[in-house]
């Protein structure tokens, strides 16, 4: 299972949109950082824009640019989101809890389902192909990526894989009881075009795997690398979130200091990997251990 990344676009708290190499503008986040938003009107029709929440705007714009940069129309779309369209979810909760009359405003409900993101992309692109939405807590991006790689393996020629999540103020109330993290909740969307090997000038995703009852990260990584016939000495860069063993990789970078906290941020790490100046015959490993016990591993060449 491997595929070439031919285009990758991120919108989030970094100034990453439209940048050739996102490492150049990378800054650790302050406590008060905000989404660096492009002018959405350029990418989204006014009729859609007026209803769309931030996560929809970010995701749709990133997906649209990916399609613009990809000659082939996508023949599959796979999106990962851990908490979905939270803003509209909260808005609809407020709508029915405070309602006094018989009628309820439907727009927030319609846009509260997780697959609003992938559905809106299909509509904007006029795309009738396979359209999937995965949600698996901190491994939401990885499960969407695994589906994307599967699509390539099955013979699809141009697959859009993406991840998007949005922060609402309410989430901070969940710390530290339900969620433990040193990072503030943030929003982010990263979309990438996958194509079969041989089509790309950028990087390739070699493999991705998820582990749900991980007790030994070192062993899981060793097995994963062995399955891909990659020697751990050839890992030049490790992009990680959460705790990982210190023994792997020449260089280790914690990507959450750049993304802040959202549970599909491994997609942004994928963008960092894609733009990284990697030496020949070397590899990048993304180790997503945002949540204890749950481990996502992605190997980039």
């Amino acid at each position: 299972m491997s595929a070439v990344i031919t285009s990758i676009v991120s919108i989030g708290h970094q100034d990453s949109f439209g940048k050739e190499n996102i490492w150049e503008t990378l800054q650790p986040l302050g406590t008060q950082s905000e989404v660096v938003a492009p002018d959405y009107k350029t990418y989204i029709s006014p009729a859609s824009l007026r209803r769309f929440s931030p996560v929809l705007r970010m995701a749709l714009t990133a997906a649209q640019v990916c399609q613009n940069e990809t000659v082939l129309p996508f023949d599959a779309i796979s999106v990962g989101t851990s908490l979905g369209c939270l803003k509209d979810t909260e808005r609809f909760l407020q709508t029915f809890i405070t309602a006094t009359g018989d009628t309820l405003s439907p727009t927030a409900f319609i846009q509260s389902t997780h697959n609003t993101i992938a559905g809106a992309i299909s509509m904007a692109l006029g795309n009738h192909s396979y359209n999937m939405t995965h949600t698996q807590n901190s491994l939401s991006f990885e499960t969407a990526l695994i589906d994307g790689l599967l699509c390539i393996q099955e013979g699809k020629k141009s697959v859009l894989v993406g991840a998007a999540d949005e922060a609402i103020e309410f989430l901070e109330l969940l710390k530290p009881q339900v969620i433990q993290s040193a990072f503030p909740f943030t929003s982010g969307a990263t979309f990438l075009s996958l194509q079969p090997e041989g089509n790309g000038t950028k990087k390739a995703v070699m493999d991705c795997s998820v582990h749900f009852n991980n007790t030994n990260t070192e062993e899981a990584i060793a097995t994963f690398l062995k399955n891909n016939q990659v020697d751990s000495d050839t890992i030049e860069l490790v992009l990680f979130a959460g705790e990982i063993p210190r023994t792997i990789g020449a260089k280790q970078v914690n990507y959450e200091q750049y993304t802040g906290l959202y549970y599909s941020s491994a997609a942004f790490a994928c963008h960092l990997a894609t733009d990284y100046a990697l030496s020949k015959e070397k590899y990048i490993l993304i180790v997503n251990h945002q949540v204890n016990g749950k481990l996502g591993l992605t190997l980039i060449r």
Binding site: A47, T103, I110
Partner: peptide, 22 residues
């Protein structure tokens, strides 16, 4: 204005909440 069926439902809400018409 290019409104659609979702807007039609919003109109129904508008009529009830502002004018008491169901």
């Amino acid at each position: 204005l290019g409104l659609d069926s979702i807007d039609a439902l919003e109109f129904i809400v508008l009529l009830e909440s502002n004018y008491g018409i169901k």
